[in-house]
Simulated scan of single mutants.
Amino acid sequence: MSSVTDFLLNRASEPRLEAPAPDASTLDRAFACAARAPDHALLRPWRYLVIEGDGLNALGELLAAGYSDMRGKTDEKKLEVIRNKAQRAPMIIVGIAAPKKHQKVPEVEQILSAGAGMSFLALALQDAGFGVMWRTGELVYNPVVLKGLGLEKGESVIGFLYTGTVSCTKPAVPRPELAEFVARWPL
């Protein structure tokens, strides 16, 4: 098989990330890869927000506000934990599904296209030598967070792609046996 297959078989999510983050040229190339995702009818049902520097502090405050909205009154210690989630990497890329009304392309296909774009983006960044970790969690669905990120009606966050330089390697994650998730049909 090709070097692409070898690369995919060895890729891993990296939770421990530090500066530097990708430079503008590397990021542009990675977004060009994201735009190669399967896209029925060329609707481009995705968009991205790049957050770094002081934006990470603002994201932390937004996450804390969303958490307070969900939980009501919370203690400052818990809010600080939530704020610090935005400091896990020097760059966070927010992937947004932005489906368009179309008679032949259902919304689910468009959301899957946005997810594929996010995957291509992650792979391109890893190929450039950076680590990534795709994270979600209940806060990415919170209305306060969605409004604060500027999402339009019908849009949704598909994930936060934490991006940076890998600070330390982690143990390999066991992968499932193919027979656990692959079957021939008809059975």
Rank of each mutant, 00 (worst) to 15 (best):
L8E: 14
L8N: 09
L9F: 14
L9P: 08
N10R: 14
N10P: 09
A12G: 08
A12H: 14
E14C: 14
E14P: 00
P15N: 13
P15G: 12
R16A: 15
L17Y: 08
L17E: 12
L17D: 08
L17R: 06
A19F: 08
A19N: 13
A19L: 13
P20M: 08
P20C: 07
P20R: 06
A21L: 02
D23S: 01
D23W: 07
A24K: 07
S25M: 05
S25R: 15
T26D: 14
T26Q: 15
L27H: 04
L27T: 02
F31K: 02
F31Y: 08
F31W: 08
C33D: 10
C33T: 13
C33Y: 11
A34I: 04
A35R: 13
A35H: 14
A35V: 11
R36A: 15
R36K: 15
A37D: 03
P38M: 09
P38S: 10
P38Q: 10
P38Y: 07
P38A: 10
D39A: 06
A41W: 04
A41K: 12
A41C: 12
A41V: 03
L42R: 07
L42A: 12
L42D: 06
L43P: 03
R44F: 02
R44D: 01
P45H: 03
P45G: 00
P45F: 01
W46F: 01
W46G: 01
R47H: 05
L49M: 09
V50H: 00
V50M: 02
V50A: 05
E52T: 14
E52F: 11
D54W: 01
G55Q: 13
L56E: 07
L56K: 13
L56I: 02
L56S: 01
N57L: 14
A58K: 09
L59K: 09
L59Q: 06
L59I: 12
G60D: 12
E61I: 10
E61G: 05
L62F: 11
L63I: 03
L63M: 13
A64F: 15
A64K: 08
A65Y: 07
G66T: 15
G66Q: 11
S68V: 01
S68N: 05
D69K: 08
D69L: 01
D69G: 11
M70C: 09
M70E: 13
M70H: 10
R71S: 07
G72P: 07
K73E: 14
K73T: 10
T74L: 08
E76R: 12
K77N: 10
L79M: 04
L79D: 00
L79E: 09
E80V: 07
V81Y: 06
I82T: 12
I82L: 01
R83D: 02
K85Q: 11
K85C: 04
A86M: 08
Q87K: 15
Q87P: 05
R88F: 08
R88C: 05
R88N: 05
A89K: 08
P90C: 12
I92N: 00
I92G: 00
V94F: 04
V94T: 09
I96H: 01
I96Y: 06
A97T: 09
P99I: 03
P99E: 05
K100E: 05
K101S: 02
K101P: 02
H102R: 05
Q103N: 03
Q103K: 06
Q103G: 00
Q103F: 02
K104G: 08
V105M: 01
V105N: 01
V105A: 03
P106D: 13
P106T: 02
E107G: 00
E107K: 00
V108W: 15
V108L: 10
V108S: 10
E109P: 00
